[in-house]
Design a protein around this nucleic acid. Structure first.
Lengths: 229, 229
DNA sequence: CGAGCGTTTGAACAGCGTCAAAACAAGTGG
DNA sequence: CCACTTGTTTTGACGCTGTTCAAACGCTCG
């Protein structure tokens, strides 16, 4: 990974300039001001973007590829709280340190914005502050949904929900999974073996079709939804 | 439950007045401006504060008692994503509708603030906007921790973690549980029977002592922490 | 072609859920 | 003050879902 650091003053300057434009009705001030300053950086598969306890220096946006947000326990257990796909932002946390790590699942391109610059911008530009809140609130809602899944669903319902939400977020029913069974298991609170068994079961029952382990076609979306409930 | 509605203009007026004060270094603008306008309301045990899909009209703060945030599935399964204790705020969500319901676990006193007023205030007062973001970010971090618990912990570790976090948030090692075994189970992704069995097991092993079902003393906090990990 | 992962599949096991009953607590009315 | 009711908690027996351990299979890439 290589990158050049973004200048805070530059950010603030852009913010000031963009103000009249924003007041004229721009939809996403964060898009318009900050994103333009972001430096896009490449990460290799399984490369760490930041670790737990790392200083929180940047706000990130996925351009290409898939990112996982993880917590690790000493004995090797891992929980992936979310997968992020192009368009998703991450890295915005309370305090100066990350409480979770972020890793590239596959080769990724990720835009990085100076966190302090963004926060300074939020101080003077209310639309930016509101947008930051929206981002955080949206991720909160997803976490709530995931809590329901982890706490109250069977393996079958978990996998079905996972496939559907992935299809929904990407916008296609022919999925190419970027992540290994192991990653899916650590996301759904299952072992990789259970994920594998459940997928073959879903295939045998006609809900999905697999063209190789990573390419999954959803054959009957509404029937899958019934499983997921 | 009875209450009088809060006036938006009143809120905005207070916000304007409080500005010089805030700029002089107030710690929590939300505290100083909005909270002063809140109407405190009483709820009975198990009374619903708001339902899923209800219009999101207020921002709430727990004064006394305990609140649970729930999701329900058609077949009766329930997931409690959080318990809230005095000092916690809730009800702040993306969009105009709630995606979760909130219920009083025991008799509660809760302050309510007009949501639109708060948001209007956030538009003109940046400290308020930042505070709203902090609230959301903090609840997000708790949700992440809970995801780790649900996905990767055994029943024993779940219950141990629950007791410790409750003790930590209340600030005492002699707990009086406001909620039933059933509520705890729906929070930890367990059945009420498993919660009960696990508690008696923890008592037999000397980690806790029970003086009646709802009064639990943590005898060995550091040993309990080791279980929780 | 062979080495190294990732995936699938199998068999045995265990943790937790389910069902059922009993013990307990708290409130109600006689 | 006691009998009765209702809801919560505990305890037991049993079974199922998902884990663990192990082996075979199949990609992908030197």
């Amino acid at each position: 990974m290589t990158m050049s650091v973004i200048n805070v003053d530059q950010l603030l300057a852009r913010a000031t300039h963009s103000r009249p434009y924003l007041e004229a009705g721009a939809q996403d001030p964060l898009q318009n001001t900050i994103e333009a300053t972001g430096e896009t950086v490449s990460f290799d598969p399984n490369e760490e973007i930041y670790a737990e306890e790392d200083l929180s220096l940047y706000l990130y946006k996925v351009r290409k590829g898939t990112v996982r947000i993880c917590r690790l326990l000493e004995d090797g257990r891992r929980q992936i709280s979310a997968f992020l796909v192009p368009g998703d932002m991450f890295g915005l946390e309370l305090g100066d340190c990350h409480s979770f790590s972020a890793e590239a699942v596959e080769a990724c391109e990720i835009s990085m914005f100076d966190r302090r610059g963004v926060q300074a911008l939020a101080q003077i530009n209310n639309s930016v502050a509101m947008r930051l809140w929206e981002l955080t609130a949206q991720s909160g809602r997803r976490l709530q949904e995931h809590i329901l899944l982890l706490g109250r669903m069977t393996a079958k319902a978990k996998v079905a929900t996972f496939l559907l939400s992935l299809a929904d977020r990407i916008g296609v029913t022919e999925l190419r999974l970027a992540m290994a069974r192991h990653d899916i298991g650590d996301h759904l609170g299952l072992t990789l073996e259970t994920v594998s068994r459940t997928l073959t079961q879903l295939e045998n029952e006609g809900f999905i079709r697999m063209r190789g382990a990573r390419a999954i076609d959803i054959m009957n979306s509404s029937a899958l939804k019934r499983l997921a409930a």
